[in-house]
Write a protein that binds this DNA or RNA. Structure first.
Lengths: 188, 188, 188, 188
DNA sequence: CTCTAATCGAGACGGTACGTCGCGTCTTACG
DNA sequence: CGTAAGACGCGACGTACCGTCTCGATTAGAG
């Protein structure tokens, strides 16, 4: 396992291969849970050789990581402006709307075996969104981030697993009141 | 496969065997993460035949489930009186103290591959602890339970993973203020 | 690789499996050269699981070894009486006749990638046939054995590879005069 | 693949490359058995590109073939005068002395995975050494050649594998009496 | 007390996925 | 523009674990 996961490989073949692998995993995730997807499945779907998989990723979790990092980045970038503007409700709504529009994918990402890895990446990226609350000395920032992100993930997962019983606006309100407002904009 | 997962088997031998399996898993969990423990490992440690394992449990996850259910039951029973008495801080302290006294075990249960299953059981049992809050119409009880339990699990996991940097009282305060008080005793 | 190649495994399943593997290899050897036969081929032909192969043999060469040892034992037992009786010609004829009757098999054993392993086993078993010649002090017994066996193998291989151009009696005469008589019955 | 296996390529660069490859293989053969040497190893040692290998040889066996052909040619040319002069003992001694002076190389060539290919080339070139024996009608010339060469190879291999237990003169005597004299100089 | 029947340890087996290795082809980037 | 460097498709290898199964020894209950 000496995979060089350099973020920007010069060789276009490598870029192409990795993109194909991510795309293949994404495609498979919409059909079956992460645990049931084998590396061979991914390789076949991506139309690359089985061994080539390992030349690019150490495990299927690594592909998921790449994939999740990308999706989460988009999600955060989407919600960021509203958070900056201290409009928690708008941020929650934007976030939920985006998730709703990619229901299959996010269901796969937030439930089943993939959840752990996605949550981890979520926390990593969530750390970048600095909360403005500096008053709660008893609450370590890192822990606040973890709890906030976990709550978000749980809320979304719960929502996604329950089909379409709850409107986007409703879940966005829950998300805002339970997570975003308390953490991001505690003083209003 | 006709696994008799009856909660209370009449045959005392079966009880003994299951107890041995749970005990073996518990013992192994203190040495290595759940994912790396094989069914064979458990059988050897429990000094039962490999095939006999499958007569009692369908998978190692099932053993973990049994184990976790038991531990979680104890945990909740420990904190319950204080919760009933609306003393969130005392409940949090009791809970954290118990966890602290079984650090190795709870570290194994709340981090690593076991976390998912344990969290699930936690949520299931957490549902029994009825919250008194009837005011938040916008927040489904089930979701409140999930978020509350998840936050608890995350806080504990974060605490356990960080060795002994934080005193029991401190993490209990966090737990109380972030989770127990808001959910359990919203009005005091 | 902790294969216990005990010659007499108590478990009948192991016996059966090994027999099936030997038989499968034998069957495949009549169709294609040894090098082109994969372990999977053998497993499929023997109708055993792929992993089970490795529980019984460390490599396909080991199966070939077993197989060859058996065949060579038969061959030597066939020629032994005549050798004992100092009738080199009869020994040679018996040997060549037997080979001729299993042409396909012996062609596979003595030509192609299998030759090396078979020759080795041949030499090992050939050492049991004590030559009566005690006069040639300049020739180590071990070397005499090697040269004798190698010559036999080469003669048979040459014969087999040339289809049916040479009668059994003719090649038996060559074998007798070149190898058996000089080595086995030097004084007549 | 249009491998130019022309024996005498006009382009000097090709000559140089092939020489480098032969030399690299020769160098590697003194360190490890033929089977364990990979084409990549050879290319690296020869300091040529991996793909360039295939422009010059179809396989590593082809390189070995080239190499062996060269060495065997030297060996035969060394022994030829003495054979011509019907001095089998001198021929054997010359041969054994040369082999002894390049022990590592010939050990690699005559034992391990390389033996088969080397033997083959040995036989091919051995056919050039016409034996004078015309009396044995029952023995095809081709077969005589094969048996003679094989015996030679086996004797040398046996000698080389046994370290330095036997003096050059002793093994030369064996070689002469067992192979050269009977075949080359049947009438004296 | 004997003899059959059930039980349980031990572990062989079929199966599936893994991660590695080497080959031979083919693309890319560099001089 | 040609050559090194090396990514790639391919396919065999040997390993690990699962869940099923068969075997043999031990024991229990019936006669």
């Amino acid at each position: 396992m000496q995979v060089a996961e350099a973020s920007t490989p010069s060789d276009p073949r490598i870029k192409r291969t990795r993109a194909a692998l991510c795309s293949a995993l994404l495609s498979l995730l919409e059909e079956q849970p992460f645990d049931q997807i084998t590396i061979r499945d991914i390789a076949v779907r991506a139309e690359i050789g089985y061994a080539t998989f390992f030349r690019n990723y150490a495990s299927k979790a690594a592909v998921l990581h790449d994939l999740a990092a990308d999706q989460i980045r988009r999600l955060i970038e989407l919600a960021f402006p509203a958070i900056e503007g201290r409009n928690g409700r708008a941020a929650a709504l934007a976030l939920c709307t985006y998730v709703d529009e990619h229901r299959r994918l996010w269901t796969a990402l937030l439930t089943g075996g993939a959840a752990g890895i996605v949550r981890e990446e979520f926390i990593r990226q969530g750390a970048r969104v600095k909360t403005m609350s500096s008053r709660r000395a008893w609450l370590p920032l890192e822990l606040a981030n973890i709890v906030g992100v976990s709550a978000t993930v749980e809320i979304l997962a719960w929502w996604l697993q329950r089909g379409l019983g709850l409107a986007v606006e409703e879940i966005a309100r829950v998300l805002d009141q339970l997570v975003i407002s308390p953490f991001v904009k505690p003083r209003g």
